[in-house]
Design a protein around this nucleic acid. Sequence first.
RNA 1: GUCGAGGUAGCUCAGUCGGUUAGAGCGAGGGAUUCAUAACCCCUAGGUCGGCGGUUCAACUCCGCCCCUCGGCACCA
Length: 519
Amino acid sequence: MTTPSPSRHYVTTAIPYVNARPHIGFAMELVMADVIARYRRLRGDDVRALTGTDENALKNVQAAEQAGIDTATFVQAQAAAFEALREPLNLSFDDFIRTSAQRRHARGVTKLWQACAARGDIDKRAYRGLYCVGCEQFYAPADLVDGRCPEHDSEPELVEEDNYFFRLSRYEAQILALLESGRLRIVPEGYRNEILAFVRGGLADLSISRSRARARGWGIGVPDDPSQVMYVWFDALGNYVTALDYADEGDDYVRYWVDSDARVHVIGKGITRFHAVYWPAILLSAGLPLPTTLVVHGYLTVDGRKIGKSLGNAIDPEDIVARHGTDPVRYFLCRHVRFGRDGDFHEARLVTATHAELADQLGNLLRRTVSMIARYTDGGVPAPTDDGPFAALAVQIRDDYERAFADYRIDDAVRTAWTIVDAANRHAVERAPWKLAKRDDPAARAALRTTLYELAEALRLAAVYLAPFLPYTAAQIRHQLGLSPAPEPWDAATRWGGVPVGATVTVGEPLFAKTSPAA
RNA sequence: GUCGAGGUAGCUCAGUCGGUUAGAGCGAGGGAUUCAUAACCCCUAGGUCGGCGGUUCAACUCCGCCCCUCGGCACCA
């Protein structure tokens, strides 16, 4: 089931608030989006990947105040910490958007607002709500404890002010139809069902502005109304198009949004409603194409405990990578966290997986293969003399792998790739080339050459399939096998028999050194 | 309350359309082997498949009820 390629793909992560340092949960989201982008590029598709930071929230103002810095400076430093994840996690995003600091964003979101307004979907209404001065936010009655603010134990005051409202209710039927038809796909399906239930419950209009005073002057102004700023969600969701220069409807916007085959948002389960309901409604109103797919992941606990905002167990991705390596962290996040479900980032298990799977199974396979080729066939990949069991396996694997990615089940995709590694290790033992090498008859020599070829080719395939997850490792495997750094076009790359006979192998350093377990 | 997702070997999890002896990895025990990072490979581990009842020749897999965990239920990653 090969999907037609090349096609155009736009892949994004959500943009996180910057009031706290990045934690391992967001690192997982970044890695997932990166894996999807790398997979599409591997297939020859035209891909654009975006991440960035959501900076206009009141929370950021408060956090800056606590830190004793002005908001813009604080936000700038925090955003840098997120962008700095690119190196340690080996991310390949093409662009990074900052919602408070880049004109393209403010301009684009203003245009988006105006487009909705022109459609008659934005109007000013009186908004009444219970407001806690301490928290600087409104509370729904249900969120209060005995009518008091859960944080400050004070009675919130009834505040009435004019806000702009978006006519979400108008789009109820359309949103429902989108979800039901699958034109807007949500994976895994469980999340789709939740949203469906939510929409069927009826959609009320949405407040999309705050008084400038209440927002402490921070945020993007409502067009033609200096007294109001946009509610951060309206501005944040817009990032997906403003980053592409929606403001001027530039080339990137046309290419990756309007004319794209897939507009994919990778998000955490907590914000699916914003992406499955509010965002499509805004786009519908403004007359822009909608996202095609929402890829929803679960939350991570750390060593079994919830990630506390300031509880101290919020693992720093840079730190964990410094101790265990980029590919092991990416590998653990991709294979050992079940797609769509909550998972546990267990450091001891990360170490176990790195040793048992990456070092012992994959790393060792490469080493034993390359060593035998160096020793038995003078360092050149030999020509096979007959077909082994792998050609059929290769077809099956490609099929399973593409199917897994079609549903964004990246953990299954890794498992599928791994079946090659397992098969090759077993094959090595069954054929025992080290025994064949001690015999001197023609049959043994033919069998030896065929087997070594098969092992090299299996590794080549493994490197192809693992490249999205383990970019550095895949490159190392290619290097040691004597292959060019750039992989072949997808069809050729995934077909059995791609290792050139005579390629000169290099016995390099072990792929994964075994580290001692972290304290 | 309601809706959803889970509850399978010590741990983390797989189990397609119901079908014969319920699987994998880790951990544990044993064996084999030497190409390789003491790695690879093979065997074993005897788990009431949350509980009770039902449908069926046959249910982990379908239906009902119940128990436990987590999450959504209007503006909160």
